[in-house]
Design a protein around this nucleic acid. Structure first.
Length: 475
RNA sequence: CGGGGCGUAGCGCAGUCCGGUUAGCGCACCUGCCUUGGGAGCAGGGGGUCGGAGGUUCAAAUCCUCUCGCCCCGACCA
């Protein structure tokens, strides 16, 4: 492993790519814009899946699977939806050697195929709510791609729910956003800001969209999850009506929501350093590595000691016992640091003699001598603390790079300079929003839920505003 | 789609301007010895017809024509 990771200060974007390639999370594929997710990366996705899935189930959702291919006519049924997605769709025109009578779209998202089915399944208010999620791949023909952050094919989950009333749908939309927030913070150790998207940034075909927004180490924003209240748009497009308690026919209210493999990109950019990947313990499928160190005839004593530790921990954690003899310790240290293993235990003759061992935390690189006795407790406790402190650290970073600005000149200076999240007043006019984007490339990330009402003046036009929104450059 | 860069061994590159032995280097890989508290060392070894097609020439990685592909930056987007 001769290659080194490019330092963040030198080239942030290279650093990001280096980490992914060198930690073996993913690799470029023969197909442009598509990547191969390697075992180290897929393990992270599996942890995202299993934990989120549990949260979905706990909130009453079930999984199903809908087809990859969507008839062209379905895509055309919802006006805004077509307009939003058509340009970035891949389309199948030939099947079995024959030109198809109706073209088939490879799903960029599944609203249309799902709502075509919901029409068959929903008759009565008794059929509602319908709370279905699917884990799937989708394709969007992106012009410019980046590993994990934007690839033409990506993995995600998409929830699609049907409700009897607007209020219920709205409640669902918000409930899921909170699930996303809890997941991001408790598992990914990434603090996020929940809020509402401006109209120009909302999902094609939605009434409105909520998002959680995270700050990366380069102070840019990353949308980490979205939840849409689709109103009755898709129900009307696919004619999905139900009979209510009074025997009256009504259109169904819908939501959809999703997070994708992009979260892995977020995880990398939020925590990692110039040595490589840093994973919060809950996202590490192998949280501990044991490295025995010996010379000559010390081997047996060290290996016996190390094996004892291994056996004790193995019962509770997937532990790597790196007893390869062709590599020296320094090499192993670097390799596992690069891959983000949270805890390294070094065991050498000196440790055997003292009945202790060396524990190194990946996030802080802090090295400490710990007693052999109670090692399981020590490891567990350290992992818990790391999870906690990584979230805390990320939160502090975000706070240190968040600003309240009321003057447009200062606003531009901040965005074009250091960047970060800028909380400013906005009148609600799309023109002012567009102007800012044109001037600075910053967009409204969202209108945060949690903030006190505050009278102010739009930073562009000076008209009245009732609250601040977050502006930032985004991925 | 605009701008830039690049295709030579698994990876990273030199060689290309100015054609000329058997296409070279580093890393990785294999064998052996030796090593283990921060990416060891020595010796030996395997592997490429130079993105593709056509052309010029006694002779092409190198010159000419066409073509395919990838990466980075920008517009667009999870």
């Amino acid at each position: 492993m001769a290659e080194k990771v490019t330092p963040r200060s030198e080239d942030y974007s290279r650093w990001y790519t280096d980490i992914i390639l060198q930690a073996k999370l993913a690799d470029y594929s023969p197909v442009k814009g598509a990547m191969v997710i390697r075992p180290n990366g897929y393990a992270i996705w599996e942890l995202i899946q299993s934990n989120l899935d549990k949260m979905f189930k706990e909130t009453g959702h079930v999984n199903a699977y809908f087809p990859l291919l969507i008839p062209e006519s379905f895509m055309n049924k919802e006006a805004e939806h077509v307009e939003g997605f058509s340009p970035e769709c891949a389309v199948v025109t030939i099947g079995g050697g024959q030109e198809l009578e109706e073209k088939l779209y490879i799903r960029p998202t599944s609203e249309t195929i799902i709502w075509s089915m919901y029409k068959k399944w929903i008759m009565s208010y008794r059929d509602l709510p319908l709370l279905i999620n699917q884990w799937a791949n989708v394709i969007r023909w992106e012009l410019r791609t980046r590993l994990f952050l934007r690839t033409s094919e990506f993995l995600w989950q998409e929830g699609h729910t049907a409700h009897a009333t607007f209020e219920e749908a709205e409640e669902e939309t918000v409930k899921i956003l909170k699930v996303y927030q809890r997941f991001a913070e408790d598992f990914l150790a990434i603090p996020v800001i929940p809020g509402k998207k401006s109209d120009s940034e909302k999902f094609a075909g939605a009434l409105h969209t909520y998002s959680i927004e995270a700050m990366m180490q380069d102070r840019k924003a990353l949308q980490a999850g979205t939840s849409h209240n689709l109103g009755q748009n898709f129900a009307k497009a696919f004619d999905v009506q139900f009979q209510d308690q009074n025997g009256k026919l009504q259109y169904v209210w819908a939501t959809s929501w999703g997070v994708s493999t992009r979260l892995i990109g977020a995880l990398i950019m939020a925590h990692s350093d110039d040595r490589g990947l840093v994973l919060p313990p809950k996202m590490a499928h192998r949280p501990v590595v044991i490295i025995p160190i010996w010379r000559g005839d010390e081997k047996k004593a060290v290996m016996d000691f190390a094996d004892g530790v291994f056996q004790e921990l193995k019962a509770h954690y997937p532990v790597i016992f790196d007893d390869r003899e062709q590599y020296k310790p320094g090499y192993k240290f670097s390799e596992w640091e690069l891959q983000g293993i949270p805890i390294r235990l070094e065991i050498g003759p000196r440790d055997v003699a003292k009945n202790s061992l060396v524990l190194v935390r990946r996030d802080t690189m802090q090295k400490q001598f710990v007693e052999r006795k109670g090692i399981l407790y020590t490891v567990t406790e350290t992992l818990d603390r790391m999870q906690e402190e990584m979230l805390q650290k990320a939160k502090e970073f975000r706070e240190a790079n968040s600003f309240r600005i009321d003057d447009y000149a200062a606003f531009k200076k901040q965005i074009e300079g250091e960047g970060g999240f800028v909380y400013s007043h906005w009148c609600g006019d799309a023109q002012c929003e567009a102007r800012i984007k044109e001037d600075t490339k910053a967009t409204i990330r969202n209108i945060p839920f949690d903030q006190e009402k505050e009278e102010g003046q739009c930073i562009v036009c000076g008209k009245k505003s009732t609250g601040r929104v977050i502006f930032a450059k985004a991925y």
